[in-house]
C-alpha cells in the first residue's frame, strides 16, 4: 500500500506543469496613500517618488526635524539620490510641517 501511495504521488507531481501559477506579467496595484498637500509638495513628489511610494513617509510616523533631515541625508549619501541642497531644504521643511512632532531634535 505504501509503495502504491508513493507511485501515485510521483505521478501527480510529474503531471503538474512546471510553472503553472502565474504565466503572465504580474500587476502590482497602485495605492493612493493619503499624503498631505502643502508647500513644497511638488519637490517632494519629484524627488522622493523616483525610488519609493509616499507610504514610506507615512509609515515613519510623526518625527523631529533632525530625524527628517537624517532621512533625506540617507537618501543622498547612501542611496545616491540626486537631491540638490535647495530641494533638500524644501523637502525637510515639508516633512517636518506635515509629519513632524514639533521638536527640532
Amino acid at each position: 500500500m505504501k509503495v502504491m501511495k508513493k507511485v501515485l504521488l510521483t505521478a501527480l507531481i510529474a503531471a503538474t506543469p512546471m510553472m503553472a501559477q502565474v504565466k503572465e506579467k504580474i500587476e502590482v496595484p497602485y495605492i493612493a496613500f493619503p499624503i498631505k498637500m502643502g508647500k513644497g509638495f511638488d519637490v517632494v513628489q519629484a524627488n522622493c517618488l523616483m525610488c519609493h511610494s509616499f507610504g514610506y513617509i507615512i509609515n515613519q510616523g510623526r518625527q523631529s526635524k533632525k530625524f527628517w533631515e537624517g532621512k533625506v541625508n540617507k537618501m543622498i549619501v547612501h542611496f545616491k539620490a540626486p537631491i540638490t541642497d535647495k530641494d533638500k531644504k524644501v523637502i525637510v521643511n515639508y516633512l517636518f510641517k506635515h509629519y513632524g512632532n514639533g521638536k527640532e531634535q
Binding site: 502590482v28 496595484p29 519609493h52 511610494s53 514610506y56 509609515n59
Partner: peptide, 19 residues
C-alpha cells in the same frame, strides 16, 4: 483593502517597492 498579486489583502506600507 487591495490584494497584491497572489496575496490576500495584508497590512500595506508601500506599493513601490511592495511592503
Amino acid at each position: 483593502n487591495v490584494a497584491f498579486p497572489e496575496k490576500r489583502p495584508l497590512i500595506t506600507y508601500s506599493d513601490r517597492p511592495p511592503l
